[in-house]
Design a protein around this nucleic acid. Structure first.
Lengths: 252, 252
DNA sequence: CGTTACGTTGATAGGAATCAATGAGGGTGG
DNA sequence: CCACCCTCATTGATTCCTATCAACGTAACG
């Protein structure tokens, strides 16, 4: 028994506020309607709920409508590596497009609602709506670019720089969603942040404490207020800028 | 003036030996023909030549026919991060699908020949050939999975494990191509390997020397012979397996 | 045969992991 | 409603891995 029958809630892509950030971006009203016909809006996930897990059959892509999810890969040894965090308007599930099985696990970090796009239906529409197909390509391309960005961050930056980069990146994403860019709630734990950035929880905690001491940010548990955006931004790539100015093509 | 007019060389996807590893995988003869009509086979790249560079307009995907390329992203500070190495049958250029510009630079590590698939033509065909479209999705999905794998390797493994993982991964890829899996030539420098794995050149060199001392591999400059595949494989994930057996969900 | 890029090896130092202890919520059940 | 537990987070002390600095060896090339 459920108190709310979500199947009856009438939400269409067309009148969704995320419209221009999400999968339907750039589609005409007519094309949108086709997409709308296959979208499934399911019961919200509760914090900790899995959307899908590694190894499961891939059948849908999901657009986040509200909330936040983390996506992680699991190594042979059972270690987890968080690949990304997904905010409203972003698409989760691409990790299954390789071979028909999810290679990652997606977990809700807070109560989250999603739109499911069954893959077979989606590819069907793609055949008839080139704009959607290209949008799919773009979304996958963006995912790749983000992965590359993360790789750069992890291999080239030290702990503080990684943390600053992370905080700023979240800030920009919230801004894009119309929220405050200087004040937000971290829905992930310190441990998740560390895992994502290739650091331990202690290092993340120390880094954030240091930022607070330097009056770059204010921390209240999960709430972050950015006090000095400029300084934080400078920190993101400050290592080489400060120390070495410009040494050409150092191996790492 | 060129000694060989490559435009006259008649090679089709259909009779290409990489057929089943490459873009055309799974297409019917008829579909292949459509694809074949848009493929451009260009003059081979020489070692050091750039196929495209970051910021350039994206217009084609490329299949490697022979040789090897490296793909790297560049940070704001000019640091390079190698994203991947591309062997015959693999597709380079997906980094441009995000926003119409390449976010990475591709450089030949040795003389390499390529097939170019102009993007607009490719998407044209995709509209009419669903199998190709899905193949495109799969290829992008695979690229994503590989990125995730690399991330796991870099954040969760120590230097020796990363190097062992790299050597084995190459071994498997060569095997898939029909070459020896126990003996091959590294077309990339130690510095490239280090960059790719998030290590310095010295650490790579030391690791490989150690492997040689332990009789896991034999090194002759760029030539690698794998002497103890089993031990090497064990090394790939040995850290946790040896030391901690199974500690559940350590943050990193 | 000198020049240059690449690779190896050694010594040292530094940054982040690890170990350890304590503190702060947040939910549960008595 | 409070005491308890459990997870999450903070902070300190120590260790260890790998970067860095440095010197030398080697191969490729004109």
């Amino acid at each position: 028994m459920q108190l709310i029958d979500f199947s009856k809630i009438k939400v269409s892509c067309e009148n969704c506020s995320l419209h221009e950030l999400c999968l339907p971006r750039g589609l005409t009203a007519e094309e949108l309607e086709k997409l709308d016909r296959v979208v499934k809006r399911t019961r919200p996930l509760q914090k900790g709920d899995m959307l899908f897990r590694s190894g499961e059959e891939f059948h849908s892509l999901y657009a986040v409508r509200s909330g936040c999810l983390k996506l992680y890969a699991t190594s042979d040894l059972g270690e987890e590596q968080i690949i990304g965090f997904y905010l409203p308007g972003e698409i989760v599930g691409l990790d299954g497009m390789d071979n028909g099985r999810h290679s990652c696990t997606a977990v809700a970090l807070e109560t989250s609602s999603l739109c499911a796009f069954p893959y077979t239906h989606l590819t069907d529409i793609c055949k008839r709506v080139p704009a959607l197909n290209e949008q799919m390509f773009r979304i996958m391309g963006r995912e790749l670019s983000q992965d590359n960005q993360l790789l750069l961050t992890i291999t080239k930056k030290n702990a503080d720089e990684r943390i600053a980069t992370f905080l700023l990146s979240l800030s920009m994403r919230f801004k894009r969603l119309g929220y405050s860019s200087s004040e937000y709630k971290l829905s992930m734990s310190r441990s998740d942040i560390g895992n994502y950035l290739g650091l331990t929880i202690e290092t993340v905690s120390r880094g954030m404490s240091r930022f607070q001491k330097q009056k770059l940010i204010a921390i209240e548990g999960k709430f972050i207020r950015i006090l000095d955006m400029g300084a934080l931004r400078e920190l993101c790539g400050a290592a080489a800028a400060g120390a070495k100015t410009e040494d050409n093509a150092a191996s790492r």
